[in-house]
Write a protein that binds this DNA or RNA. Structure first.
Lengths: 202, 202
DNA sequence: GTTTTTATGGTACAAACATACCATCAAACG
DNA sequence: CGTTTGATGGTATGTTTGTACCATAAAAAC
């Protein structure tokens, strides 16, 4: 055998190249050749590590979803000691607003995948349904906790408010992606809305 | 000359064929041939009425945006006599939730266009920025009117609430498109949120 | 030291695509 | 009545795509 290379590392390298080209030219314009060029390898190698283009796209989507989850968890972790529910919720939802370049790439490509998945049967809806539903339950838990400790109005319907929150952050994220709003403006709107959900006590 | 046909009608016919195929197989999979087949004409005819594919796509987007505007105006018109701001706002925002098949087609293809426009410079962002900004101003006006007549809390920031409203309806519409929620559920969430914005007086 | 494997490059190929070109039919116009 | 012109069909062409095939270097295994 030759170099005996780390397969996972190679795959990750190629997938990252795909994500970069997808963010630049659009997911629809991604080709075996463009990915190979961006990754600095031959087309044959892309074939070698991902047999077919469909498998490459699927692997990229999987990696994308995983990285998104990591980013959310990182955000929650760095929110400071003994955080209030409002802080946790804010951190989680702000992750949907693309600020840095990596975040922008992620959300752009992710959205492109989501739209693609509606018509393409090969891209099963798993990552597009499992993750948000999980998130919804998480938010319901946080809201309920806030209601128990008097940080939020107990008369509110936690489930509906959670759905509204997710919709708001998704909608704001999309508008930032489309260049309609800056990330800062979107974040301000989100904080405004959270201010209504978690009234300041005085 | 031969039949001396109505150009606009022919163009509309072909564009509708494009929208149908785009809704079924995805905008990325739309080809001159598929559109021609769906429209029941030859490829040559599609070329004849829209010189290039890019022009065809652009014309379809223009028609799509126009039809969307019509639908919103129709909704507002049929909201009943002497409508309250809440009814108007509800009607406008519910248009973003794809209920019937035509609405679903519109929003799916429109979203695909929006994602495409981020990377494709040929699709200038005009329809993606002008329409929402117009809508935002409209909502601000309705909210301000409601605040003046005591139908809504005057301490609220009408501008920010309008942005939240648009984001919520966009996010809910997307989740319906992705099959995460039914249109009925999304409508219920929207009404719940409106209920918080326009409290019932008792 | 020979024989497997593994990793890689290059190239060939069939399909699909957008578009350009050639041809035709029929209605309007003079 | 002939000629121009708008509307349409068919086909050719060059390019790009995904994928299959052939080749080879080199490390491990024996």
């Amino acid at each position: 055998m030759p170099k005996l290379v780390d397969h996972e590392e190679r795959r990750a390298h190629i997938i990252d190249a795909l994500l970069r080209t997808a963010a630049e030219t659009g997911l629809h314009a991604v080709t075996m050749r463009s990915v190979a060029t961006e990754a600095g390898v031959s087309v044959r190698l892309v074939q070698y590590y991902f047999d077919t283009k469909e498998q490459l796209l699927l692997a990229a989507l999987t990696r994308l979803a995983a990285r998104m989850g990591e980013r959310v968890r990182d955000r929650v972790r760095t929110v400071g000691p003994s955080p209030a529910p409002r802080d946790i919720v804010e951190a989680v939802l702000l992750e949907a607003v693309p600020t840095d370049e990596e975040s922008r790439t992620f959300h752009l490509v992710y959205t492109a995948y989501a739209v693609l998945a509606v018509t393409d049967p090969a891209l099963a809806g798993q990552p597009f349904l499992a993750a948000p539903n999980e998130m919804e339950d998480f938010l319901v838990g946080q809201l309920a906790a806030a209601q128990r400790t008097g940080q939020s109005d107990p008369r509110l319907d936690a489930r509906q408010e959670a759905v509204v929150l997710l919709a708001v952050s998704a909608g704001l994220g999309l508008s930032v992606l489309l260049g309609q709003r800056t990330a800062q403006d979107a974040a301000a709107v989100l904080r405004y809305h959270l201010g209504r959900l978690f009234p300041e006590r005085r």
